[in-house]
Simulated scan of single mutants.
Amino acid sequence: MLQTTAQNTYKQNQVGTATPQDLTLMLYEGGIKFIKRAKHSIQEKDFNTAHDLITRVQDIISELIITLDRKYPVAEQMLLLYDFMKNRLIEANIKKDIAALEEVEEFFVEFRDTWKQAMQIARSQQPQQK
Rank of each mutant, 00 (worst) to 15 (best):
M1Q: 01
M1W: 00
L2Q: 09
Q3C: 07
Q3R: 12
Q3E: 07
T4I: 10
T4R: 03
T5A: 09
T5P: 00
Q7R: 14
Q7H: 12
N8V: 14
N8F: 10
Y10E: 15
K11C: 13
Q12E: 14
V15K: 02
V15C: 02
G16V: 07
G16S: 06
T17L: 13
T19Y: 09
P20A: 05
Q21V: 04
T24N: 08
L25D: 01
L27M: 05
Y28E: 09
E29A: 09
G30F: 09
G30V: 00
G30A: 11
G31A: 09
F34R: 14
R37N: 12
R37S: 15
S41V: 01
I42P: 04
Q43Y: 03
Q43L: 02
Q43N: 12
E44M: 12
K45E: 15
D46C: 07
F47H: 12
T49A: 15
A50Y: 07
L53A: 13
L53F: 15
T55W: 01
R56E: 12
R56Q: 11
R56K: 12
V57Q: 07
V57G: 06
V57N: 04
V57C: 00
Q58D: 09
D59R: 01
D59K: 04
S62A: 10
E63F: 07
L64H: 04
L64S: 07
I65P: 00
I65Y: 00
I66F: 09
I66N: 01
V74M: 11
V74F: 14
V74R: 13
A75F: 06
E76D: 15
M78K: 13
M78N: 15
L79G: 04
L80I: 01
L81A: 15
L81G: 13
L81M: 09
Y82K: 00
R88K: 10
R88N: 04
L89F: 02
E91N: 14
A92E: 10
N93P: 02
I94F: 05
K95E: 10
K96M: 00
K96R: 05
K96E: 05
L101Q: 01
E102L: 02
E102F: 09
V104W: 03
E106H: 03
F107Q: 09
F107H: 07
F107V: 02
F108K: 09
F111T: 08
R112H: 15
R112T: 10
D113P: 05
T114C: 15
T114E: 11
W115N: 08
Q120S: 10
Q126V: 05
Q126D: 08
Q126W: 05
Q126F: 08
K130M: 03
K130I: 05
K130G: 15
